[in-house]
Write a protein that binds this DNA or RNA. Sequence first.
DNA 1: GCGCCAATGTATCCAGTGGAAACAATCTAG
DNA 2: CTAGATTGTTTCCACTGGATACATTGGCGC
Lengths: 193, 193
Amino acid sequence: MSPDRPYHHGNLRQAVLDEAATVVRERGASELSLRELAATIGVTHAAPRRYFPGRQDLLDAVAVEGFARLGARLREAVEASPDYQKQIRSVAHAYLEFTISEANLVELMFAHKRGAGGRAVGESAAAAFTPMLQMFRHGQAEGMLGHHDPERIGLVFLATLQGLAGLVNCGVVPAGQLDALLDDAVARFPHGP
Amino acid sequence: MSPDRPYHHGNLRQAVLDEAATVVRERGASELSLRELAATIGVTHAAPRRYFPGRQDLLDAVAVEGFARLGARLREAVEASPDYQKQIRSVAHAYLEFTISEANLVELMFAHKRGAGGRAVGESAAAAFTPMLQMFRHGQAEGMLGHHDPERIGLVFLATLQGLAGLVNCGVVPAGQLDALLDDAVARFPHGP
DNA sequence: GCGCCAATGTATCCAGTGGAAACAATCTAG
DNA sequence: CTAGATTGTTTCCACTGGATACATTGGCGC
C-alpha cells in the first residue's frame, strides 16, 4: 500500500459508484470487475463491499443513477416548450440521444431482474418517465389525443422509442435511418379518433 | 468416468446447444456456466470447446436458433390469414407471446454486440423479420398504408412491439395492461395520410 | 484385415472473479 | 483518554473460462 494515502478514502462510496458508471458506460456491465475497479481506485477488493454487499447491488445503484440522469433529460425536454407538438419531438430526440449514446448503461438499466432487490431501480425508472406521461396528460387536455387514456398512449410511445433505440443499438436498424424512423414514429402520436 | 458410456458422445454439438438453450431460457444467459453444462451432459468441460471455441460462440449459436424459432412463429402468424387487418394483430400477438414467454432468450438475442463475431446473429435476425416486412408491403399494395415506405413502417411497428415486450419484462408495465396497450399500438398501423 | 491419421474427448494447469470471515487501523462520542 | 463503532486489509474459498498436452476412438487407404 502506498503510505502517502490515508487509510480512509473519505468518499469511497461515491468513488466506487463513479468508477463503476464509467466502466459500464465504456465497456458494458458484464465487463465490470469488482477487483479491477477496487484496484483502479486504490483500495482492496473487499473495501467496496462495505457499501455494496454484492455485485448486483452496485449495478443497481448505477442503474438508479442512470434513470435519474435520463429523467432529468426528459424533464428538460418537456419544459423546453409549452407546445405539445414541440414537446413530443423534443422528448423523442432526447430519449433516443441518451439511449443511443449511453447504450451500455441503458442496457443495464432495463436488464434489471424484476423481483430481485431491483425494486429501487423500478421506482427510479417510474420517476424518470413521469415527466413524459404528464406531457401526454397535458396533450389530452389540449385536445390533441382524442378520448384515449393518456397513460396508455404514453406507454406505447415510450415503448416505441425504447424499441427503436434497441434496434439501432443491436444493429438491426442502421443509425442513418433513425431520423426518418423517428419522424414516422412521432407522427403517429398527435392523432386520435 | 462411467465405463458404460461410449468415449464419443455421437452428437455432442447438438446436445451442448440444446442444454445451453434450456439453461438460457430458465436462468438467463449470464447464469450459463460452461463447466456445469458439460457436467450435466456428462463430458469434460473442455470437450464442448471443439465445437464452440469460446463462451460467446455458444451464446451466439443459441441466439441464432432463437431467431430461427421466432422467424417461424412470425411466418406462421402472417400466413394464417390473407387479411392484412388480421395479419397485423396475429403477428403482434405472436411476437409478444414469444418475446415474453422467452424473455431470457430474447434478452440474449438482442444483446449481441454488433461488430463482434455476432454477424451471423444479425443475419438470422434480419431473416426472422422478413415475413413481417413483407406483410407491410402487401398491406401497402392493398392500400392500407397510404404512400409511406412500408419498410419504415415495418421497422417502427417492430420497434413498438419490441419496446412493449421490454417494458413488460423489466416490470415497468404490468402484464395485465399488455392487451390494452397492444390494441392501442396495433390501431396506429392501418392508417396513413 | 491392418496400420496410420484425423477427429473427438480427457487431464491438468492457469489467471481471474465474487464472496466470506477474521483482523487491523482510524475516527468519534463520552 | 479510552471504548466502541467505522472503515480497510488480509487471507481464504469455490468457481469460472481458457490453454495445452495427452489419450481414445473411428475411418480411410492399402
